[in-house]
Structure formats: C-alpha cells, structure tokens
Design a protein around this nucleic acid. Sequence first.
DNA 1: AAGTGCTGTGTGACTTAGTCACATACATTT
DNA 2: AAATGTATGTGACTAAGTCACACAGCACTT
Lengths: 228, 228
Amino acid sequence: MITDANTISRIIEQFHFLQSADSDFVQRFFDRVNKIELPPSQPICHQGTQCSHLALVISGVARVYKISDSGREITLYRIGPGESCILTASCIINDEPFPAYAITEEPIEAVLISTADVIRWTDDTPALRNYLFNLISSRLSEVIGVVEEIAFRRVDRRLASYLIQRADTIDGSIETTHQVIASDLGTSREVVSRILKDLEQQQMISTARGVIKICNRDSLYEKSSETQ
Amino acid sequence: MITDANTISRIIEQFHFLQSADSDFVQRFFDRVNKIELPPSQPICHQGTQCSHLALVISGVARVYKISDSGREITLYRIGPGESCILTASCIINDEPFPAYAITEEPIEAVLISTADVIRWTDDTPALRNYLFNLISSRLSEVIGVVEEIAFRRVDRRLASYLIQRADTIDGSIETTHQVIASDLGTSREVVSRILKDLEQQQMISTARGVIKICNRDSLYEKSSETQ
DNA sequence: AAGTGCTGTGTGACTTAGTCACATACATTT
DNA sequence: AAATGTATGTGACTAAGTCACACAGCACTT
C-alpha cells in the first residue's frame, strides 16, 4: 500500500496508464501495490526462476541480459523509468520461467504488483493491459534489433555506434571499462580493447583507465555507418 | 465472412480461444473475417510496411526472418497452424512498421482479421486478448533464444542440433540445400558446406545434391551438446 | 548423344572475431 | 615503497565470414 501523496503523484506522472485508467482503479492500485528501493548491482530475476511480482520502475535503470557457459554476456535491453520488467509479466501470464538475468545498474525505485493482481488487472483494466501489451511488443522489436546487430554487423561498427550513443553530451566522454562494453555488445574484452586501440590510432577517440573520450565524432559516425 | 460449417469447425478446432470465447463473439467473428489461401514462397509482410490485417494460420507454415545488406538471412521463428503473425498484431497495436520479412514456406490457409477488428476485439474479448498475449510472449522468448544461439554457440554445434531437429523421423533424411540451412542459422553457405563435409568425414551424415541423411544420430547429438 | 544453362556444392586465400595465456599498467591501501 | 586488485595490452591460435572461381548434377533443347 502506498499512501504518500507525493510518491503517488510521482508514480502517476511516470506511468501514463494510471492517467487513462478510471479513478476507482487507481485507488485500488495504490491500496494493493508496494514501493521498493534497490541498490545498484542487485540481481532482480534469475534465469529459470518463477516471478512472484511485476516491477514497474519509477527511477533508475536495470539491465536484462544473457550469460553463456563460458561467462560471456550480452545485453538484451535496459529498463528505465516508466517501463517495467515485461519479461516478468510475460512469465507470469504464460507461467513460464524467466529466460534471462536482470540486475540493477543505477539504484532503483519500483512499484511491486503481485502475480495475482497482475492477472486480475490485465483482465479488467484496459489501460494497464494496453500498457503491458505495448511494452512487450516494443521489447520484441528491440530484441529483434539485437539479433540483427550480432548476426550481421561487424563489431568495430557496432562499437562505434555504441560509443556515440553512450557519450556524454557535454564533453563526449564515457566512464566505463572494456569488459562492460564487451558484455553489452556480446563480445569479449580483448576484442573491445583491440578495436578501441585502432580507433585511438585513427584519432577518433582517446582512452585512459576507465575512461573513453570521443575526439572526432564525425569520423566515428562515418565508421559506424560503413556498410558490410 | 466465413459460412462453410466444415471450415468453421476446422478453425475452431485450431484456435483454442474460439472455444473459450462466448458464442456471441464467435458469431461476430465469422461474420467479419475472411479466409485466404497463399501459395508457397509468397511474401506476406515487407519490412517497413504497415500491416492492414492480422493473419491466423489454419494450415501451412510461414517463416519470419531478417536480411542483411549483403544478402545474408537469419530466421527469427516460424508460424504454424494455430499460430498467428503476432508481429503484425504488435505493429497494429503500436502503430509501428513491421520490423522483418515474412514469407510462406508451405501453402497457407489463413483467417484475416482487419486492423479495426483486431483493436476492437482485443479490447472487449478476453479470450482473443489472452491468446495474442501468450503468443507474443512466447515469440519474445523464442527470439531471445535466437540471440543466445548466435551470440554464444558455435556454428558446428548449432548445425548438428538443426539437423537432428529437422531430420525425417522415418529414415533420418532431410531434403534441403546448404543455402537454406545457412539462411536459417544466420551464417553463410560456404560455412555450412564446410561443416557438413566435416560431419560427413566423421561418418555422422551422408550428403548428396539436395539431400542430407543422418547416419549416426548419437554422435551427432553428442557433437551438438559439446560445450563451448 | 551432345549442347546449354541453371542450381548446388567444393575450395583456397584472406579478413574478422573469439579464446587462452600471460604480461604490464594504474590506483588504492598498508 | 610494497602489496593488492582491477584494468588493459599482446601474441598465438582457432573459428567464422568473405570473395572469387571451379566444377558437378540435373533438366531441357536440338
């Protein structure tokens, strides 16, 4: 149960479906759900487990990913404010085990809905249902995008795109490690290190321990969009 | 509109949601939908186009896949009897363009539902809504499985699995070409040819133009489940 | 039977990517 | 300054993808 008016208005602001739902539902909603806070690097869902709650993220970011036997990782997508761990919803509704891992990256505030409420509400509340349907559809599109990336695009091009995307808007710097990048892209740390070295020699970026800085965004962009 | 009693009962048999829906809806359903037949190798959805109908497959198989600039393909999943081109549904509901290609493999009979009816019925008919939700969730799981395969598993292991899966149950033979296999697995024809040659030298299979026959299923299975 | 053409398969040489085993560099603590 | 832990660099090797081209099997013509 959530009672704090301030928290409630933050949640309503973040989740559009609460605005289009009738006030009766909104009241029941805040009666039945709970708010939790999670620290960074907190595992949320384990592959193969059943999910007991659906989490709607108010603030923070979580990462959903796969791990291979050899320990390599690949990020499927991230969950941000206003979104939800939709795989959970899909597991709840289909009664299947969770097919991946999820972990918090930035500290998360989330609303927890119990399995029973998810099932009841998706049945009788069009607003929530549409919200979930839209979210799961866009996840499907995103994951199809991941398939396309890893099946067809060269790692150096993908890395160039990744750097542009992640670069700080002000000074073009990124604080991260090669291992983290490798885990996002689904490749190995050595491969990332070598490509970064190449990019540095071509003056597109400069690197230091834990930091990458974009020096020539244009030529990096050009590299990212080379075909084949 | 579908009136033929025989056709109607075949459709109801295939689509469970029509059994759990109330009879009022079933009547409206058959009043409003149409049946189509498509020959093999007929393109259904083109990447980037809007979808005007949702197709429910009564018989036959379609393939949903991605193509790279260089012409390489990868299969995302197949649509069989009782299933539906759920990407279409997701595009209809989110009003997004279709993110892949779909083509019939075996001749297809399908029920076509117009965009407007899809939207109306997902809103007022729980049975149809749940059917679609389950389907899209399981597609998401499948596509996540594809990511895992191409990101982490070696091509020779994947090919071994593929052959076991596709082999005729009676004599263990498969009628296909190296190019078709490559397109399913998301690799190139040459790679498939080389690995098949290896498998043949290890007496696991024998090959001829357009045919592959499994000779030693056990050792092929062993190969498919080697780790790393 | 020989000719023609299409589709399917084989192969070498080369580039890109992933693995393994280390070496080295930098930052923080003691 | 030494010790520790994390981050990065590198060579050697295997796996996978690309390109160019050769050749084989089959259908169809004449």
